[in-house]
Design a protein around this nucleic acid. Structure first.
Length: 472
RNA sequence: GUCCCCAUCGUCUAGAGGCCCAGGACACUACCCUUUCACGGUAGGUACCGGGGUUCGAAUCCCCGUGGGGACGCCA
């Protein structure tokens, strides 16, 4: 039985890197009919917040990443960690260290100055023939793990291949602070062990923690899980994703009008591939996903490709669903959606032309709110040549049946009678009706509006025409 | 500084010794479609970081270099 986990620390929102890690862990469990566990690593009381926990939950929910167990909170497992620490102390795989924090800082500084890797020097580490100093009464002890002194720790990383690190590179890490609280690397080990995690899929910033964790796991007599370290995701500019470099919450993609399916699909293809397949459902992804075919190198986020994918998904989403998605967005903007013109018809007409839900809302807004065309656009498309044709068209509107075909016929008629090309009429119509130069074909566009609104908006041509300084 | 990791078009990637003078996708350019803009269609340019090996043969294996990244906390 395969068991994977996603273990974020709630110190901020769920960003794309975390989301991708969660997605891969989730997909791997789904692929193998295993369990996906959510564990909140909140041992840093100072930085963890309930809002951040909620933000992570929201993000996962939006993406559709459901978990089978959890969320577990490390802060609720403190008694368990304490028990394990006592066991290790008793077994001799951990020991108390009375070296103060300043003393440690000093040591590290000296080592660094000498060009050495800063490490604890093992002065309180018990050895067979070693005489330990007398514990100072006033200094509270930390507990350190007694890391093996010799040999190498190695594992076959499922993404990066075999990684070996000499134990001599590792020092005896603190597993319990002076106040008795357990530290990160230790909690992870106990949790992964207790929760029976078989595959640890996480960011490759944890590669350096892995040998330490393996050593502790071994000291505990626990089964060592398999590890897969995912390389990081870089921002659009190739820079590391950070708050100032556009690291955004996945929920911001929701706000920006992206579909979760598109974001998932995009994230899935970032660092993972299945031949030439680019567009696939989450269901398909879960059938295909495996840990081979994951790239070991870092990937740069590409918003343009995400946009393309989103547009693609938008085109495939049925109108009813889009209606439910766009409606609230319009409401949030204070736009009242009325029966006429029909929002469904507006969406139908524009769904192939936009890349996100907000653009769909933007264009819908034009129908429900009378946005004034810009003077320069009117000046550009209205002329003494087109004005009579426009009048004739507006007049003709009253007597035809209200459908795109009839409207189109009227347009062709007017254009032909004046011996002009189609755009000479289509462009002023677009601008007068929507304030935009780019719209779907005008006949279809007009058919969506109520007849009265069209006539009213076309009347604007007259007002422009009489104003002084117009090119008419 | 020490240790670890990474390296194919601008970007995401295919590629697990011959199928590759390197394939797909986004982006880009041109053309077609066309009532504008998209969509769609067709065509096109652009890449194996460098140097040494190994081999009949290397994008693929090995070594060195270079570049990038990560880690060295009583943070996670």
């Amino acid at each position: 039985m395969i068991r994977t986990r996603f273990a974020p620390s709630p110190t901020g929102f769920l960003h794309v890197g975390g989301a991708r890690t969660a997605l891969f862990s989730w997909a791997y469990a789904r692929r193998h009919a295993g369990s996906f566990i959510l564990r909140v690593e909140d041992t840093d009381l100072a930085r963890s917040t309930p809002q951040a926990v909620q933000a992570i939950l929201d993000g996962m929910n939006w993406l559709g990443l459901d978990y089978d167990e959890g969320p577990f909170y490390q802060t609720q497992r403190m008694s368990r960690y304490r028990v394990v620490i006592e066991q290790m102390l008793a077994a001799g795989s951990a020991y108390r260290c009375y070296m103060g924090a300043e003393e440690l800082d000093q040591l590290r500084e000296t080592q660094r100055a000498q060009g050495l890797k800063p490490r604890y020097d093992g002065r309180w580490r018990p050895e067979p023939d070693k005489v330990l100093p007398t514990p100072p009464a006033a200094v509270p002890a930390v507990v350190r793990f007694r890391n093996p002194a010799a040999g190498v720790v190695a594992w076959d990383d499922l993404v990066k291949g075999r990684i070996e690190i000499a134990n001599s590179e590792l020092d005896d890490l603190v597993i319990a602070r002076a106040d008795g609280s357990p530290t990160y690397n230790f909690c992870v080990v106990v949790d992964d062990w207790d929760m029976g995690i078989t595959h640890v899929i996480r960011g490759d910033d944890h590669v350096n923690n892995t040998p330490r964790q393996i050593n502790i796991l071994r000291a505990l007599g626990a089964q060592v899980p398999l590890y897969a370290h995912l390389s990081m995701i870089l921002g659009d500019d190739g820079q590391k994703l950070s708050k100032r470099h556009g690291a955004v919450s996945v929920m911001q993609y929701d706000e920006a009008g992206y579909l979760p399916a598109a974001v998932c699909n995009y994230l899935a293809r970032l660092g993972w591939s299945h031949g030439d397949d680019e567009v696939f459902s989450m269901q398909q992804f879960c059938q295909w996903f495996d840990l081979d075919h994951i790239t070991p190198s870092a990937a740069q986020f590409n918003s343009e490709k995400l946009n393309w994918l989103n547009a693609h998904y938008l085109r495939r989403t049925d109108t009813a669903r889009l209606l439910a998605l766009v409606g609230p967005r319009l409401a949030a903007r204070g736009v009242t959606v009325t029966a006429e013109p029909s929002l469904a018809a507006i969406i139908e007409l524009h769904r192939e032309r936009v890349t996100n839900l907000n653009e769909l809302a933007d264009v819908a807004e034009v129908f429900y709110r009378d946005l004034q065309p810009k003077a320069e656009l009117l000046a550009k498309h209205l002329s003494s040549e087109t004005l009579p044709m426009l009048r004739e068209f507006a007049a003709g509107l009253a007597g035809i049946s209200w459908e795109a075909a009839a409207i189109g016929a009227l347009i062709k008629q007017c254009v032909a009678r004046h011996g002009l090309k189609m755009p000479r009429l289509a462009m002023p119509l677009r601008v007068l009706l929507t304030g935009l130069e780019q719209t779907p074909s005008v006949d279809a566009l007009i058919a969506v509006f109520p007849r009265s609104v069209v006539i009213e908006r076309l009347a604007r041509a007259e007002r422009v025409a009489v104003s002084p300084g117009s090119p008419v």
